[in-house]
Design a binder for these strands. Structure first.
Lengths: 190, 190, 190, 190
DNA sequence: GATGAATGAGTGTTCATTCAT
DNA sequence: CATGAATGAACACTCATTCAT
C-alpha cells in the first residue's frame, strides 16, 4: 500500500499550507490540518513525529520546490544577465502562482521554528544561484559584494512584488515585470 | 481611584514585542505577554479591548515609530539622492537597532491580523517617502515606476539586510552599508 | 445627600432585575448591573455587602411589592369569594405588568440563593392572604386543606397564566381571566 | 479506537442535573459538571458541542422522561376522570421521586436558554395529555377552556406540591394527595 | 496502518471584589 | 461618597498528543 502512503503525505502537505493560509499560523491546529487532509489527527502522527516536524517538513518541502523552480533552465553557455533574468522570472512566477507557499514560508521563517532549520540544507538547495552570483563577480559583470547583499537587491524584490499581501491592489503587467528586472540588474551590474 | 498608568501601557507594548520575538507570534499568549509586562492578564484588558486590539495597536505603534524615524531630516533643499540616502540610512539604523520591532511587524503582516488594519492609515505615515519618490520621477532623476516597485528595490533591501534572522552571521561594516545604498540607488536612478 | 442615595438604590434594583431578565441569572455580573444602573461597580459595594446581598435584597423587594399589591383592597366586610377574587386579580395583573419581576423571582427561588432567605419574613408579607384562607376554612366556605395546597391551586395558576415565558403566544381576554378565576374558585370552594 | 461510552453520556446527564441542583444554574460550570461526572472537561466536548448543547439536551431528556411517565397507563376505555387521575398521580410521583429533575427543568425554563428550545418538540411529547383534555371538552365532561389553562390548574399544582423547595417542611399523606387531586378535578369538571 | 475517544495543560476572556485616589 | 484601576480565580473552550481498538 505504498501509493496510499504518498497520497496521504501529499494531502497533509497541502492541508498544512492551506490551513495556515486560511486561519494563520497561530490558529493552525493539528486537528484542523488533519481534518483538511481528510485524515484523523492520530494518523498525522504516523507520518510526522509531532507538529513541529510537520511544519518544518512542510517548510523544507516548499523551499525545495522553490529552489527547483528557481534554478530551472540555468544555462552556463548563455550570457550571465540572461541567467539572472531566468532565475528572477522563475522566482517571480512561482511565488505569483503559489502565494500560499510563499506566505507559509514567510510566516515560518519569522517564527522561532526557523531556528530549528539547518541553514546549510537550505543554502545547498540554492547553490546554483550562489554560483551564478560568484561567477558574475569573478567575471566582473556584477559588483563585488556579499552573496546575501546581492540576493537582497535582486531576488527579494521579486518575491515581494509577487506577494499580493504586501503589494495589494497591484497587478503587474508583462512590461512592468520586465522593467522590474531591469531595476534589479541595474542595482548589481558593473 | 487609581489613574491609568502610562508606564503600564508602554510595558505592555514592550512585552508584546519581546514575547513575540521570544516565542513567536503563534505561541504568544495573553498570559505570557502579561507576565512579561509584570501585570495580571486581567489588567491587560483594561488597556486593550482584546488580544487583537493589543496586537494591532502594537503593530501600528511600531509602524508609526518606524515612519517617524524614516522621514527624519528629509530636506527638500538638498539633492534628491541625499534625501533618499537619508531615508535609507534612517531605515537601516532603526531596524538594526530594533530587530525585534521589525520581526514583530513581519510576523504580524504575514498573519491574518494584517487584513484588519487600515492600509491608508499606514500609507499616510509614509507619505513623505512617497512624495520623495514622486518628486524624483517628476524631476527625471529616477525611473518612472510605481511607488511600490521603487520601494521594493530601495527600502525593502535595507530592512532585510538589517535583519539578523534573515541575514545571519552577518555584520555590515560602515563601508558595506554605503555600498549597499549605492546598489539601491543604481537600481532606480535614471 | 439623602435623595441621591435612594435614587441610586432604586437604580440598582431596577438594573438588577433588568439585567437578569436580559442576559439571565448566570450571565448577570456585577459589572453589567452597575453599568446598567449607571454607577461604578465599586459604588455598588457601598449599598450592598456583596453580590449575594444585592440579589437577596432585590428578591425580597420584589416579594414585598408583590405582597403589597396582592393584599390591596382586601375588605373583610365583603363576601369571601370577592376577597379571593380581588387577590387573584391583583396577582394576575401585577405579574402581567411586571413579567420581569416575576421572572427574576422565579430564577431566584429555584437557585440555591433561595436557601438564604428567611421564609418567615416572606410568609409575614402574605399573612393577610393566609388569614383569608384560614377564615374561609373556618366559615366552611372553602375546603379544609393546608394553606400551601390552597395556594398551589388558586394563586400559582394565576402567576403561571400571566407568565409569557411559560404561556407563550397566549393573550388572555378579560373574559378568559374571569373564567380562569372561576376554575380556581371551583377547586377550593365547598 | 475507543468507542463512545454510553455510560459516560448517562454520567454526564446525571452530573449536570446534580450539579445544577447543588450549586444552582448560574454557578454550574463545565468544570464542575465534568468533575461530578468523573471525566475531564475536554471529554465533555466529545459528547456535547458546547455548554448550551449539554444543558438543552439535559432539559429535553428530562422532559422526555417526564412525558413518558406522565402518559403511562392512559386507557381510553376507562372513564375520563380516571385517566386524569392517572396522569396527575404519574406526575406527582415522578416529580416527588425526582425533585432534582424538576428543579433543573424549572431553572432551565426560567433562563434565556429556554428560548433556544423548539416548543413544538416538547408539545409533541405531551400530546396524549393534550388529547385527553380535548376529549374531555368534547365529551362535555370538563370545562371548555384552553389547554394551557387546564394544565395550569390541574397539572402545575401537582408539580408544585411535590416540590420540596416550594412546599418545604411538608410531607403529603396518601389521603392528602387524593384530596389534592380532587381539587384539581373540581377546578375543571363541568 | 488507521482511528476517534480521552485528557492535562493551555487558550482568550470575564468574574467578584478591593484599593488608592 | 464615589470611582476606575487592579487582580487571582474562574470561565467556556481548544490544544497537542496518546491510547485502546
Amino acid at each position: 500500500m505504498r501509493t496510499k502512503d504518498e497520497e496521504k503525505q501529499e494531502a497533509l502537505f497541502e492541508a498544512t499550507v492551506r490551513t495556515v493560509n486560511k486561519v494563520g499560523f497561530a490558529s493552525s491546529s493539528v486537528a484542523k490540518i488533519a481534518k483538511q487532509a481528510g485524515v484523523s489527527p492520530a494518523t498525522l502522527y504516523i507520518y510526522y513525529k509531532n507538529k513541529e516536524d510537520l511544519l518544518i517538513s512542510t517548510y523544507l518541502n516548499i523551499k525545495r520546490r522553490l529552489s527547483e523552480v528557481a534554478c530551472r533552465d540555468i544555462d552556463e553557455t548563455l550570457p550571465l544577465r540572461d541567467n539572472f533574468r531566468q532565475v528572477w522570472f522563475n522566482l517571480f512566477w512561482f511565488t505569483s502562482r503559489h502565494p500560499d507557499y510563499f506566505q507559509f514560508a514567510e510566516q515560518f521563517s519569522n517564527s522561532p521554528y526557523n531556528d530549528r532549520i539547518n541553514q546549510k540544507t537550505v543554502d545547498k538547495m540554492f547553490a546554483p544561484v550562489a554560483d551564478l552570483i560568484r561567477r558574475g563577480i569573478e567575471m566582473k559583470v556584477i559588483k563585488n559584494m556579499d552573496v546575501e547583499i546581492i540576493t537582497a537587491f535582486v531576488f527579494y524584490p521579486a518575491i515581494i512584488l509577487s506577494n499580493p499581501r504586501l503589494c495589494r491592489n497591484f497587478d503587474m503587467s508583462e512590461h512592468q515585470i520586465d522593467q522590474s528586472f531591469q531595476l534589479a540588474w541595474d542595482a548589481i551590474k558593473l
